[in-house]
Design a protein around this nucleic acid. Sequence first.
DNA 1: CTTTGTCTACCTGTCACTTGGTAGGTCCGA
DNA 2: TCGGACCTACCAAGTGACAGGTAGACAAAG
Lengths: 178, 178
Amino acid sequence: MAAAKRTAQAHGYGGLNFRDLADEVGIKAASIYHHFPSKADLGAAVARRYWEDTAAQLEAMLAETADPVRCLRRYPEVFRKALENDNRMCLCSFMSAEVEDLPGAVKKEVLAFADVNVAWLSKLLVAASLVSSRKSEQRARAIFAAIAGAQLIARSRSDISLYDSTIDNYRAAGLLPV
Amino acid sequence: MAAAKRTAQAHGYGGLNFRDLADEVGIKAASIYHHFPSKADLGAAVARRYWEDTAAQLEAMLAETADPVRCLRRYPEVFRKALENDNRMCLCSFMSAEVEDLPGAVKKEVLAFADVNVAWLSKLLVAASLVSSRKSEQRARAIFAAIAGAQLIARSRSDISLYDSTIDNYRAAGLLPV
DNA sequence: CTTTGTCTACCTGTCACTTGGTAGGTCCGA
DNA sequence: TCGGACCTACCAAGTGACAGGTAGACAAAG
């Protein structure tokens, strides 16, 4: 499962395949069917676990950093970690690109990831009184999209400093709190 | 070639294949080898043509809208067109995600697309006196990344209004000129 | 004006390999 | 002795790639 996550972060849903995955885990390909009846099930499970982990991570950050503005400032860390971790990217960003080829169950989980992030950001933006609650969701989505884009661009050049400087620019421009 | 572009915009480099492409063009798969010696050549040609077209489009916009601020305001139109066109996305954003599986020649063209966009934005930002020339490239890259992200997120839900509202938020926040 | 050679665009046929998926069996712990 | 975890052995479909052949255009040679 962790292996599938790593693969999906580097090669997307299309890059997932039972043989390689089995090799990596030290098991035979057919045995995976014992745990996941189909590739779609595997993909959905991986994506679901991914957003659940992210949700937990965000909640932990919230518990750790009570001040909403400081917490918001730390949000880009979440996406930075993927880059640090062998230049991987957000599994759900990758799968978002592949939407048209995704089984319904997988797509559902991918969209859930975005929802989790937007909801969290939205809540904090309101708590920090940075935007009115009427506009918080759209602003949250803009932040989420911008950060996903920064990650994508930085990864394409395997250069984390590109991510950092882009985030800095978002702050300087006022998209993220300084 | 146009067919390959459409496919790559919807399914990425991995989604390109000679059989389907041949069918769409009304030719036999093997015949494509007459024009492109390998899949990598095909991919590179498509990506190259893509950034060349985009470069031309940007130059045309510049010729049409002399005022740099107004021209910058129109930049998001370029990425909006892909969404309008059957919910496709930027070929090079998609391929950026696939970077690790891309032949070198293809990757080169994909990165060239980003360079073209960043250079254009950078030039206009300086012309509009919005940022110092020392910081223009990083700001340009931030704008490019943010817009690519907005396109990705909007496409995953097949909802152009999501793209528009995200761009509006970039403007409201000050990332893009109002 | 006709033959000859060459070029481009395309074809048929096939290979080696990968993919998702299935059928049916073994092994081991509760 | 039951069921979960795993196995071997397959299959059909699809993949990129190649060899070798054909039809038409066109120009120089006779």
